[in-house]
């Protein structure tokens, strides 16, 4: 049973075609890693999944609902899909705890105490409960990204999207974020991860995809992808990155 399904998705920025017909699906509980050179459309594609970008042709279904301009559908899907950004995008005027409880209180209409208990649990899970009352600006990059993950998890989403979550981090902070993501993957969360961290892909991915120039070039299991790639483009990409 696929929880995300896209059929021939196309997207243009002006005259530039960013996505040239992506057809793929993701099963429930699957961890999918998307890699590819910059400008290959991988970020654009996962941003289409919660409609931060609009696709202009083709269809995307999330949890059985088709993404259209209907605001009700979009809001329903967004509360089912968590997203973690490259630049964290925490709310600087709110404390860590307020960042995490905001959506549960205002969107899910939970009580404040309930949301705070859940938030502390999540902070515990990402390993920084002691930072609850600090402001994002007082945390390191790695800690901020972990808060961002906790914020997305607070809505109890069915799917988590990661848009290059470690690209803006120092090497020693990458590990702490990846550890959280690995733990999340093991807990059975459906995840789509856009990343250049090939180690992560090898270890936890169920499938790996390579995007190039707006097209899905290769789709494979991690072992096959790294050891026995089908296409020449993948070989070239791997030779450059590894």
């Amino acid at each position: 049973m696929s929880i995300i399904k896209s059929v021939d998705v196309k997207k243009w920025y002006g005259d530039f075609q960013a996505l040239k017909g992506i057809t793929m699906d993701v099963a429930e509980g699957e961890v999918l890693v998307i890699c590819g050179p910059s400008g290959s459309g991988k970020s654009t594609f996962i941003r289409c999944i919660n409609r931060l970008e609009q696709h202009q042709d083709g269809q995307i279904f999330v949890d059985g609902i088709e993404l259209t301009n209907d605001l009700k559908n979009i809001e329903a899907i967004r509360s089912e899909v968590g997203m973690v950004f490259q630049s964290f995008n925490l709310f600087p005027h709110l404390t860590v705890l307020q960042n995490i409880t905001l959506a549960p209180v205002w969107v899910r209409k939970k009580s404040k105490t309930e949301a705070e208990a859940k938030a502390m649990e999540l902070l515990e899970r990402v390993g920084i409960p002691e930072q609850a009352d600090k402001f994002p600006g007082q945390l390191s990059g790695g800690q901020q990204q972990r808060v961002a993950i906790a914020r997305a998890l607070a809505m109890e989403p069915k799917i988590m999207l990661f848009d290059e979550p470690t690209s803006a981090l120092d090497p020693e902070m990458i590990k702490e974020v990846l550890d959280v993501m690995k733990e999340l993957a093991k807990s059975g969360m459906t995840m789509i991860v856009v990343t250049h961290e090939m180690g992560f892909a090898k270890e936890v991915a169920d499938r790996v995809m390579l995007f190039d120039e707006g097209q899905l070039v290769e789709e494979n299991t991690p072992e096959e992808f790294f050891n026995n790639p089908k296409s020449d483009r993948t070989k070239l990409f791997l030779s450059q990155i590894l």
């Binding site: 931060l52 809001e75 509360s79 968590g82 950004f85 925490l90 205002w106 969107v107 809505m155």
Partner: peptide
Amino acid sequence: NGQFEAADAIGLSSIQ
């Protein structure tokens, strides 16, 4: 723009 996107991504309505 990231702030708008983050607010959208956690499901806030446009007034929120």
